[in-house]
Write a protein that binds this DNA or RNA. Structure first.
Lengths: 153, 153
DNA sequence: GCGATTCTCTTGAATGTTCAACTAATTTGC
DNA sequence: GCAAATTAGTTGAACATTCAAGAGAATCGC
């Protein structure tokens, strides 16, 4: 209040307000759906699935921790804790870098790949049913553009 | 993979794949921005801000727990834990319902209202800068329609 | 070369969320 | 009326994430 009294201050207009409410609800529901579904069917949260998925597409199924964190929009700490758990499960292996002693590589194990391959169809079905089956192709393109715009800078 | 071999199975096409990646990154970044910002400036996560915000708009600044949970897309348990913390902070008070002994009302205290009013301008600024300043009015309308479509059923 | 800085990653504590189990109150079916 | 089912909310344990602090390795500046 005090900060807003004496400064010109941009509030949300009605259209923005409606969009914001709808977005918050929709994204919260989708996130919960993804997490619940993966937890039930594959015993891991969505964040862990994404780690496996990103590694599976990387050369030799391995990435440097920092690059992986950046790709996943994860903090280094969050990734470090997650990788520790995934190593315990034998889904991921940590390798030292040959050139740079600071760098650790996270690598998908065969077991991790197996788990991912088993989890993927159910997960994708959830994504399709919760999101893409509800949108027109035009809306899918719009969603990509909007999301890209949000990532400017 | 194996599960997908013998069943007709809808995967994501290229456009959906691109939209999905962009959406995941954008929504994760936005959520982190909102949480970090509110934690820094007001000492609470976004979920707690939303509790205060929803109550502030309700008649007499109070809602039944179940209704509040539904409005926030929160589990009863999550809301219960959160309200306990907010009661400790004296930002919220819990009242018994006169007619139904199962029902609890969560009510915003004057102190809670004060905190919300102080937090709001900074928070809205974050929302505007992170989201609405990056979208055209057309995209704002599209975002609302897409979010609404995601909530069908 | 070598101290200061930066970079990469980890750690432990504090916090928030989920899940399953539970209590208590109300409503339903008969 | 009353047992069974439903509804509202809580609890504690397990788990995930954040945050601040820090360790170790490479790089920068001079």
């Amino acid at each position: 209040m005090s900060a807003q009294k004496n400064e010109s201050f941009r509030w949300l207009n009605d259209e923005e307000q409606a969009a914001w409410r709808a977005y918050l609800t929709a994204s919260a529901r989708l996130q919960q759906q993804l997490d619940r579904d993966l937890q039930q069917n594959s015993g891991m949260p969505h964040a862990y699935y994404m780690i496996l998925a990103m590694l599976s597409e990387a050369p030799d199924r391995g990435m440097r921790m920092t690059d992986l964190a950046e790709l996943l929009s994860s903090s280094p700490s969050r990734l470090s804790h997650a990788i520790r758990k995934l190593v315990e499960l034998d889904w991921i292996r940590k390798d030292a870098d040959a050139d740079d002693g600071r760098v650790t590589w996270a690598c998908l194990t065969d077991e991790g790949m197996r788990v991912l391959v088993e989890a993927a169809p159910g997960h994708v079905t959830t994504v399709v049913e919760s999101l893409f089956d509800r949108l027109t192709p035009t809306q899918v393109a719009q969603l990509r553009e909007i999301s890209t715009a949000m990532l400017q800078d």
